[in-house]
């Protein structure tokens, strides 16, 4: 076992950890803002909107995340850089970064998966509760944000926990588009020192710890909302 590299790369690893957490949290938040309407319109929306949402989910779930990421980073990136107007715009410093494309790809991807989860969640709320809410004279919007949405999220919380873990396990793909997340740092250590196993095992341990923390956090939140089953 060769751990001589560890002290030197420790600060970089911490930065990598922070980047991984950022990728996870940002993509999950943005992804959920896509997922909720995508799930909702499939349950109650007009047919054409439901069809679009369904198609979006199918494409996102039917193609590998790495293809989506590289399509955005290399494909969209090369289209962007072909236009001088974009290259000279104020957004270019963001559009140039692999980080941006990683968050974009993860967001769109988890939006598709969580969209399906949310569809199931909205369907799982008993009809009687929604009818009761309407009978109280609540507007459709009020029914949604007081009854339908909270109940749906509570029902699919375990599945969302799973999806969050899957998303965490997808974040190392960002290293392929130059993001120095945990995995990126590990690859750099390997490149610079030619040590293979110890860095990779370190990465595996860090991801296992993060998985454990996510599972615990979701269990805690589940415990906050009492549910009778």
């Amino acid at each position: 076992m060769n751990w001589t590299w560890f002290p030197e790369y420790f600060p970089l690893l911490l930065q990598g950890l922070w980047l991984t957490i950022q990728l996870l949290v940002l993509s999950m938040i943005f992804g959920m803002t896509i997922a909720v309407p995508v799930g909702l319109v499939q349950v109650t929306g007009p047919k054409w909107l439901a069809a679009i949402a369904k198609g979006y989910c199918t494409v996102m779930r039917g193609t590998p995340l790495l293809v989506q990421l590289w399509l955005l980073y290399f494909g969209l990136g090369s289209v962007f850089s072909a236009y001088p107007e974009i290259r000279q715009s104020m957004f270019w410093p963001i559009l140039r970064e692999g980080y941006f494309y990683a968050v974009l790809a993860f967001t769109l991807n988890t939006g598709g998966y969580s969209g399906e989860i949310m569809r199931g969640g909205f369907l799982s709320v008993p009809k009687g509760e929604l009818e009761a809410a309407r009978a109280y004279g609540m507007s459709p919007w009020k029914v949604l944000h007081r009854i339908w949405f909270p109940r749906a999220v509570r029902n699919v919380l375990p599945t969302l926990a799973n999806e969050t873990v899957l998303l965490l396990k997808a974040t190392p793909l960002a290293a392929t588009v130059t993001v120095l997340d945990i995995f990126g740092v590990i690859l750099r250590v390997r490149q610079n020192t030619y040590i293979t196993y110890e860095p990779l095992i370190t990465a595996a341990l860090i991801y296992m710890a993060l998985t454990f923390l996510i599972t615990r956090a979701f269990n805690y939140v589940e415990g906050l909302v009492p549910s009778r089953r």
């Binding site: 873990v165 965490l168 396990k169 997808a170 974040t171 190392p172 793909l173 290293a175 995995f183 590990i186 293979t196 196993y197 990779l200 095992i201 990465a203 595996a204 991801y207 296992m208 998985t211 454990f212």
Partner: peptide, 18 residues
Amino acid sequence: TIIRSVPEVVLILLLYFA
């Protein structure tokens, strides 16, 4: 437990070299 909580990319590199 190990396989399901470690990212596939890390496993692929690890198992590939190991």
